[in-house]
Nucleic acid binder design. Structure first.
Lengths: 246, 246
DNA sequence: AGCGAAGATTACTCAGACAAATAGACGCCC
DNA sequence: GGGCGTCTATTTGTCTGAGTAATCTTCGCT
């Protein structure tokens, strides 16, 4: 258990945009979801821990509040700050998910995420086909065009891919579904992220994407559901292959 | 904009278990989701706001960190703390959802929640039928028995109802789905909560619950899906009626 | 053995100071 | 007059040190 200052003194944090409390939460969050601190473990008390990180107690405490807000830890006087059971974690929180993927997520989590996508996205596509507005159709078209132009090897292309899935969820007009977008996005990101590991080139996903788009634009709910089902299923199969490789 | 101390000095907070920073976050959270502070609004600066609430700046700041962790606000130096756009809110967070329901949630949110349940729960029931373990079956049976015995008018009965839905999601063995449980639970709670407003007695939901249970216990995925679909659809219809009444 | 009081440990709250970031105003130069 | 660097004021961010409140544990009393 080595002392590990949050960041070298002059450089401070890497991301540049994250504040000190944010970067502490980030670091601690990753350590928790990666198993470095197990559920049930009690973190070293505030004073000692903040000294070890070479930050003030207030910065450390604000970091703990962030983690507690996401369900990762629980603080009580005289007891300390305890890592909560995993089923209390807010896995749907974008940050928590990002921390997971930063530390090689467990296989079960990735599979669970794709299972969730298989459930949610086809249904969302169907709703989107019924409710999408004109501007939303255009936004989706642009996203797919960007994706096609930039290719999935570029960050721009991958970003456009996520945008498309986000736009579909937006078009459902269902606020809770929209909130799921960041979760879904993490799944999409994972597909493209680990793609490089494979030897074979993955099949071109553009036709499936256009099929989803066409059905949504046409207002064909059933068709949109089926097309999205195919798209996610392929993405899932590809992810499964990538999981084998490692 | 009246001054409103978080809680009278001696009494402190009502819940008893919530700390000061938690109760401030709670109060502010409700004010945000209820529209008292609109997206784009900038909160009064830390010093003035904490003085108005008669709490220290650090307590107030920790509350803001909690809200920021849930996506409700965003702080930047020189600008202040701004309420973020609603599509950035983490609606799936149990606290955020609870705050919504504490302040008469918008009709669209309730409808969206039931739409989500219609998508997720039947699929989850099907997965549960395939993967449930023996102890999980027993736990579900006990929950339904408790629910039957106590009745839906009692808190114990309603709690058992939520437990049952939670147990079904647990039985999927899918971590992200389990995280959705608190979201689903909020929907379940809403059904029973507003039931009292109606004149007609709602139909007894027990047969539908037992149908779901039987299919899951029998390992009948298709049957579980259909049974849960019926259960949620009825619950949704009932909620729709309640929405008309108000 | 059961139960109540005392003590120790921890997070919680407070107060006040200084540092860092940055939006907006200002002035300069071209 | 317009574009651009600079300067300043405001706000959040960070730090320090003190005292408070909650609660687990232990010990002594009954």
């Amino acid at each position: 258990m080595s002392a590990s200052p949050v960041q070298a003194r002059p450089g401070r944090r890497k991301a540049g945009k994250e504040r000190l409390h944010g970067s502490i939460a980030h670091q601690l969050g990753v350590e928790i979801v990666s198993g470095r601190h197990q559920p049930g473990d009690i973190l070293t008390n505030e004073i000692e821990f903040s000294e070890r990180l070479q930050v003030s107690r207030s910065a450390y405490r604000e970091a703990v509040r962030i983690l507690a807000a996401k369900g990762l830890v629980e603080s009580r006087p005289r007891v300390g700050t305890r890592v909560t059971e995993m089923n209390r974690w807010n896995l749907l929180d974008p940050d928590v998910l990002a921390w997971f993927f930063e530390a090689e997520p467990a296989r079960a989590l990735v599979e669970g995420l794709f299972e969730l996508r298989m459930i949610v996205e086809p249904a969302a596509a169907a709703l989107a086909a019924e409710r999408r507005t004109g501007p939303q159709i255009e936004a989706m078209r642009e996203a797919l065009q960007t994706m096609e132009r930039a290719g999935l090897k570029t960050e721009a292309g991958q970003s456009a891919d996520r945008d498309f899935h986000q736009l579909v969820l937006d078009a459902t007009g269902n606020a809770p579904l929209v909130s799921l977008a960041s979760t879904i996005g993490a799944g999409v990101r994972w597909t493209t992220f680990y793609k490089g590991r494979k030897h074979k080139l993955p099949p071109d996903p553009m036709p499936e994407h256009w099929a989803v788009f066409d059905a949504i634009a046409a207002g064909d709910a059933g068709g949109a559901r089926k097309a999205m089902d195919v798209l996610v299923a392929n993405s899932r199969a590809q992810a499964a292959e990538a999981l084998e490789d490692r």
